[in-house]
């Protein structure tokens, strides 16, 4: 098994194979000039017993479990990859390995730079495997409207998990927040909530529902002129 596959296996095991909550927040802030900040938080603190017990093993279900050092190295690689991308700056990785909270944030000069950065990371992790997702645009801004969805790569991979694990996904949460410098006029997703200052929209679901319907967090947000 290659290092990349090992890492992907671990990430999937941790993200989707845990009995108690996993909390993911993807937080996009778009400035009026098209630049912005993207934050991605993974919180496994509610499952740290399980994460620690998995990490204590050499292998699980016939697959090698990477060590904490290997994971740290891999995360460093991801942040290095992002730093090397044009239009991406201020890459910060805050990894808390006691509570297993990983916080990644970076600034981007344009939505294109953001997408290229994320695609570069996906490419890095997938190695030589062909990925249809790499050509897919999951965020765009046109006519004062922002359309966004969730990259479906991990969603598709999580379908390989067994039924027991899938049942457990229902206890986690996936939160997508989109923030703007201006007030929001309307949005298409009926499940979304508008912040009191009217500059942010929040959508939340659980990983199981997201797996069943990858378009659950799709939203088109129109801003006031």
């Amino acid at each position: 098994m290659t290092m990349k596959t090992k890492f992907t296996f671990l990430v999937l095991s941790l993200l989707f194979g845990l009995s108690s909550c996993i909390e993911i927040i993807d937080d996009l802030t778009l400035n009026t000039d098209g630049s912005g900040t993207f934050k991605y938080n993974i919180n496994l603190s509610a499952s740290k017993v399980k994460v620690n017990s998995i990490l204590a093993l050499d292998s699980l279900d016939g697959k090698k479990v990477p060590s904490l050092d290997e994971i740290k190295h891999r995360i460093d690689k991801i942040s290095q990859e992002l730093r090397s991308q044009q239009g991406i700056t201020q890459v910060v990785v805050d990894a808390n390995y006691s509570d297993f909270i990983l916080k990644l944030s970076f600034d981007f000069t344009s939505l294109e730079a953001l997408q290229n950065g994320v695609k570069a990371v996906i490419k890095l992790e997938s190695g030589d495997r062909p990925l249809n997702q790499i050509d897919y645009d999951w965020v765009s801004f046109e006519n004062n409207k922002l359309s966004r969805s969730i990259p479906q790569l991990t969603i598709k991979q999580s379908k390989k998990l067994d039924d027991a694990d899938r049942d457990l996904l229902k206890t986690g949460s996936y939160t997508a927040i989109t923030r703007f410098g201006k007030e929001i006029k309307s949005f298409t997703n009926e499940e979304a909530m508008l912040s009191k200052n009217k500059k942010a929209v929040l959508l939340r679901t659980d990983p199981y529902s997201l797996m069943q319907n990858p378009n659950l967090l799709d939203n088109t947000i129109e801003l006031l002129p």
Partner: peptide, 28 residues
């Protein structure tokens, strides 16, 4: 068994969030 976990508390005005340590339970 009793453990601790971190949860994110959201501000309703802005949806900004802060970390809070709270009691948790895990299977053991």
């Amino acid at each position: 068994v009793k453990t601790k976990k971190i949860v994110f508390d959201y501000d309703e005005d802005t949806f900004e969030y802060t970390e809070q340590e709270v009691e948790a339970e895990e299977d053991m």
